[in-house]
Write a protein that binds this DNA or RNA. Structure first.
Lengths: 143, 143
DNA sequence: ATAATAATGCAATAGAGTTGCAATAACGGT
DNA sequence: ACCGTTATTGCAACTCTATTGCATTATTAT
């Protein structure tokens, strides 16, 4: 049998129906180094007859099924990105979000963050379950 | 001379004109353990004739003059909080944001975060200038 | 090929935050 | 204590992101 393209494999693997919309959006996410907003994705696929509501729902579906994750941008929009992939093609749960102070793009950097978050010393009653690193600075494009 | 109240002192100290609106908002922020949204602040001061636009602008002013800082909430709204204060009454720049998975409230915890952020290993060209820790879990109110 | 079910498109709506402008208040100088 | 300058405030209208309801269409297991 022929090897199906990667997006299609991924959708089946996660038990999602394969639709042209999902393939389209997945391709866009796979080929981006940065997390993308709804608007940015729309621009990249303009021409295709994909409704904005469907795009929102498609992205939500990806997040719900843990194909992608979403990050709140500095200007209070959601940005979407696939999970960073290891050298071994396995998903890394630990990564940092790098926010460029100039272009405002957000990158997912595969940083080892486990066990590096210091627990609050004098704060009682706070139980930490997960964490997010947000790094601010200048990205390679902007200097 | 009489000791002016703390909010007024703070405003003068930062070179801002003292207005009843600013005093009001500052008092609300000072008496809250969590970062507050525009809507939450409005609720706490309902009755006073303070327009929503003025509230936005007041909060922006506080942020611009570094009296307060703003955090993006999980549902993509801005939350506002004063900077955590030391035992010595000096402002701490390093603190973590603790987000409760149940009540969604965000607390500023005075955690020592300096020098604990691991730099990306294999990622070249990213210059880190500041960072934000976001801790997720359960707050004291919710268990 | 067909039925069951999920995905999609469209219209209307919600909600946070912003802009322009005229009215008002704060405050340094007199 | 008053006055003029300048910043702050309130109001109306608006922008933009995202959501909801519902009828239509497409996908997939059988």
């Amino acid at each position: 049998m022929f090897e199906k393209n990667k997006s299609e494999q991924l959708l089946r693997q996660y038990g999602l129906k394969v639709t042209s919309n999902r393939l389209l959006v997945l391709d866009v996410l796979m080929s981006s180094r940065t997390a993308l907003s709804h608007g940015e994705i729309q621009k990249k696929i303009q021409g295709s007859r994909l409704d904005k509501v469907t795009l929102y729902r498609t992205l939500d579906t990806f997040v719900k099924h843990d194909i992608a994750h979403k990050v709140a941008s500095e200007d209070r929009n959601w940005l979407y990105a696939l999970h960073p992939i290891d050298e071994n093609d396995s998903v890394r749960n630990d990564h940092a979000h790098f926010i460029c102070d100039y272009c405002e793009r957000i990158y997912c950097l595969p940083v080892e963050t486990r066990n590096t978050v210091p627990l609050p010393e004098s704060e009682e009653g706070f139980v930490i379950r997960t964490h997010e690193y947000r790094l601010h600075g200048v990205c390679p494009q902007c200097h």
